[in-house]
Design a protein around this nucleic acid. Structure first.
Lengths: 404, 404
DNA sequence: GCCCTATTTACAACTCTTAGACGAACTCTT
DNA sequence: AAGAGTTCGTCTAAGAGTTGTAAATAGGGC
């Protein structure tokens, strides 16, 4: 899977080059050569492949100071469309991207308890796709691929949702269900993997090849990227850091275990901490997750809020330090809605807490920051899965075509 | 470093093939083809390289049931010698291996507080090497390489011991110090990396390509292997799981943090638990680590011992479950002296504790077992580093020789 | 119009994998 | 004892990739 034949090298090089172009938006061949460790000749070959399949175009020519002008390569936004779908427990978010990974149109549908069965959800996706295409005046034929993220545990190669905690999905062959309604290449994965890939292409991965992408929302997870590639583990279950123990014999967690990171730094955990600090805090907002977390992130003069942030930073810092000690990454990125809402007030104390628990050598090698990807990183990552799939089809298959 | 040129593919294939031969002791080309995902022709090519440099030999011919007999390949124990050195805080352990990685002779020197400076330690190693060679009637020229493990954090490519906690080593260029005394190829790393490589070649890695190798001694760590290769992290500091937090605000740890796994399941931590259970337990043996841990592992009818084991299994189980949740490996192996001493009595309760904390999907994919490598896995792993270095020299360099 | 410089492209050399043809070695049958 | 059948191992040619070098290309300055 990693490196076997020479074609795998080419595929990897292709992704490297493309990631660089997307990372900076536009790049000359020289620029790419400076950032990927490849000879110039190889860069030229790979770029020609990518120009050939329409993924890139030579957008303009740049002055080179007295020599032949540099051709500037950019993603070819005209080549086609990609669809990224973020299915969460309460909504379906569908983004239509151009090939430059810019959002063209967005749609979001709520999901209620009575409409959370596979067929309902798949219909939502299909309908949203039709609507978005109509809005753009585009047709299904323009869509190069659809990436879909489903919460919980997923077996991407089988196209199965193994377990979705919020609903009662067990071993649902969701990919088939989707394909019945959407006659396009569809790729299935989960939000953790999707947002990590997004981070790799358009986030911290622009500067770094080994990173951990922490999502702090209602649930908590940590996507892992090693050597510029997503790390999936044996079962595509790697990154379930939210259910790693940080407080032995601590709070009950919805996973059945006790003392999990998620029970302390997931939104419900933070709210519980707030109640522990001040049982009558008005910031609790009667249990409204979004309102409460937003309030905690913005109100700076409330002592209960400050104390809640402080304690949360402590728990999260211990958990993050665990990741740093175990994985020794170059970057740790905190994302998802609760992480971003609390982030600005959390970060200074989080850094302190991490430094208190992480070994100096590992801590000095890592940068800790908030996710700065605009929009929805999950649907973006899903769309990137579709992009990768399209490229593999377009550029790896032709080999067998040539063979005749 | 991972995949760049086609030559890296060959190197990776070479290691795959060789690992298979070492794993089973002897293998026909057919057998290898069945276990490495390579065409028969490639197997033959790689095997010929390895025969050419003398790493393998055709030991015998096996009946094939009516056809040309299979040549059985084995490591060529006559080709030369490898040296593996395990430097610990209190001793220097030197093993002389033949190329089949069988121990020929062993030597162990204690290190006192007054002889733990780089030059002293290097002299110990050099002296031991001379002695061992004399005992075998071999000469320095027979030695293909020397692998050296130094405790603490190491930068292998620079040959520097960055920090050794027991002594006061900071950024010691230990590789140079060794080379002054030993005029042979020397490779430097730390015990965690070494024992993980040993596990990969001659332990659980025989069946599995993704594993975590836990060492439980005075210190605690977790070496990580992904896709059949050691994972080092950014700084060669990956695997410092011993200093991941499992009890928030728990026991003070020698690293300066609190609640680390090591503070509970390292030998001193276990002994502290014993005292908490029974302040006057005779099993404490006045603080003698070896005696106490051995006693805890063998005495089954002592209630304090049982309770200590139970609690230790709980802490360790939480820590191991964290690894399983985060990394989703195929195997977790527990080793090092305290782990092995406590292992048999610990294992059933450990499995329970892990199951209580790990997600079902990840837990079902993993096998948890004790290290079954005979002898010293650290010096063995160090010797394997030397073996890999020798092969790279012998088989990758010749390319440039041919170039003329 | 010529030179200079920087960028691209083209080409040849080298590697590696793989499929398939062929030869080698052994057993079994006739 | 001579084929016939099997199973292994080697060899060769084709397909695919990377890379260094040489040649072609395209402005800008004089």
């Amino acid at each position: 899977m990693l490196r076997r034949t020479t074609r795998d090298i080419r595929r990897a090089n292709r992704i490297d080059v493309l990631r660089r172009v997307y990372a900076v938006g536009q790049a000359s061949r020289q620029d790419i050569a400076g950032h990927c460790e490849l000879s110039f000749a190889t860069i030229a070959n790979v770029v020609n492949d990518l120009l050939g399949c329409g993924a890139l175009v030579e957008a303009e020519f740049q002055d080179s100071g007295g020599g032949r002008p540099r051709a500037v390569l950019t993603p070819n936004s005209e080549r086609g469309l990609l669809v990224g779908v973020d299915i969460a427990e309460t909504y379906v978010h569908v983004d239509l991207f151009d090939l430059a990974l810019r959002v063209k149109h967005t749609s979001e549908h709520p999901i209620g308890p009575e409409t959370n069965q596979p067929h309902d959800v798949a219909s939502h996706v299909a309908d949203a796709l039709d609507t978005l295409l109509a809005e753009c005046g585009a047709s299904r034929a323009d869509v190069l691929g659809v990436g879909v993220s489903v919460p919980g545990q997923v077996a991407p190669e089988k196209g199965v949702s193994v377990f979705a905690p919020g609903w009662d999905w067990h071993d649902v062959p969701f990919l088939s269900v989707l394909r019945e309604r959407i006659d396009l290449p569809v790729y299935l994965d989960n939000p953790l993997m999707a947002s990590t890939v997004a981070e790799l292409w358009l986030g911290a991965g622009r500067e770094v090849d080994n990173l951990v992408c922490i999502t702090v929302g209602t649930g908590v997870g940590a996507g892992i990227a090693i050597n510029g590639a997503l790390y999936r583990g044996t079962n595509n279950a790697a990154g379930e850091w939210g259910h790693s123990v940080v407080v032995f014999d601590g709070r009950d967690c919805r996973c059945g275990s006790r003392g999990c990171v998620e029970a302390y730094v997931g939104a419900p955990g933070v709210m519980r901490t707030l109640l522990e600090v001040d049982q009558a805090s008005p910031l609790y907002h009667g249990g409204d997750q979004t309102a409460c977390i937003d309030a905690l992130g913005t109100v700076h003069d409330d002592p209960a809020a400050r104390e809640t942030i402080r304690r949360t930073a402590g728990y999260l810092g211990a958990g993050v330090a665990n990741l740093i000690n175990i994985l020794n990454p170059e970057a740790v990125v905190v994302g998802s809605w609760a992480g971003l809402a609390l982030g600005p007030s959390l970060l200074p104390e989080l850094r302190e807490a991490v430094a208190a628990h992480a070994l100096a050598r590992s801590n000095s090698a890592v940068q800790l920051r908030l996710c700065d990807i605009p929009g929805n990183p999950v649907s973006l990552g899903a769309a990137i899965f579709a992009l990768e799939g399209f490229l593999d089809e377009a550029l790896t298959k032709p080999a067998s075509r040539t063979k005749r």
